[in-house]
């Protein structure tokens, strides 16, 4: 399968795109556009996001500043573009770390069961019962605030949720005839996990990860809003919301545009997640 898809990698992506339900294609398209925007941020942003301009303090949107300017006269459009970059990086990093950790843990717990399951699942369950924000704030209180710590905190919140989903999916696949068959055909347990269990159990994890990615934007924004995430002057969507709140009545654009960006990202991930669920998780194992 991989050998075939390498020379035609481009067409595989196109095929995957059209394999998605229509609404999920919209979500995927929005995300692709947003990622391109963040990658090309230096080209797209008309101004330096941190350049203070006393002549434009709280300037209303115009041609030079399409989203207006903030209390320090910084261009809100440029800041939003760069903030997208920070926020999306944190979202992708946190969900990727959590998924990569959840994959082996959940698979092992579901496939082997018994004491392996107990040793893996009990500590994760304890993590799951702690309130998410409390967990994040505790971690940040110990390590100190910052983008990377925020990403790790989100990953820590998501790990037990994703591991649980992966455990449930593996448990179902573990009882399929072809899994036992793989062992009887001469493969080791580890090889059977890699060849049969993981590929067949991966769907719900991907669905859950896509849905959680939407919420990750919100958590990142909350942490930054509270001053626990990305540190100024680096722009992040949550930080911009926090800054915009003070001037909401005089210059609503400082608040509205980063807020809209968050809404669009959450919407895109939800559309994608729902569409993936339709295709990959018809039994609805992901929550």
């Amino acid at each position: 399968m991989t050998a075939k898809s390498t020379p035609a990698g481009g067409t595989a992506v196109v095929r995957a795109f059209f394999w998605l339900p229509r609404s999920a294609r919209a979500g995927a398209l929005i995300l692709v556009v947003l990622v391109i925007v963040t990658l090309l941020a230096p080209l797209i942003a008309p101004h330096d996001p941190n350049a203070i301009d006393p002549t434009h303090v709280l300037a209303a949107p115009d041609l030079g500043h399409p989203f207006g300017a903030d209390a320090l006269g910084r261009d809100v459009f440029s800041r939003t573009v760069y903030a997208l970059r920070t926020s999306l990086a944190i979202v992708f990093a946190s969900v990727a770390v959590a998924s990569l950790a959840a994959l082996p843990l959940g698979t092992a717990a579901g496939y082997f069961g018994g004491w392996v399951d107990q040793v893996i699942s009990r500590p994760l369950d304890m993590l799951l019962v702690l309130p998410a924000l409390l967990l994040a704030i505790t971690l940040i209180a110990i390590v100190g605030p910052g983008s990377i710590v925020a990403a790790l905190a989100i990953a820590l919140i998501y790990l037990p949720i994703l591991a649980r989903v992966q455990r449930a999916a593996s448990l179902v696949v573990a009882h399929a005839g072809f899994v036992e068959g793989g062992r009887a055909r001469g493969w080791s347990s580890l090889a059977v996990l890699r060849r049969h269990v993981v590929p067949n159990a991966l769907g719900p994890l991907l669905v859950q990860a896509a849905i959680l990615a939407g919420f990750a934007v919100q958590i990142e924004a909350s942490l930054s809003f509270l001053g626990l995430g990305t540190q100024p002057p680096t722009p992040s969507l949550g930080l911009m919301l926090s800054e915009g709140r003070d001037v909401l009545t005089q210059a609503p654009w400082v608040e509205i545009f980063p807020g809209l960006a968050i809404a669009v990202i959450v919407l895109a991930f939800n559309l994608l997640g729902d569409g993936l669920r339709h295709r990959l998780d018809p039994q609805g194992m992901a929550s």
């Binding site: 072809f178 062992r183 009887a184």
Partner: peptide, 18 residues
Amino acid sequence: RRRIQPVFQDPLGSLDPR
């Protein structure tokens, strides 16, 4: 295991759908 091989009940469940 080379010399003892299984055939299962559910012909769909015993083949990896992928």
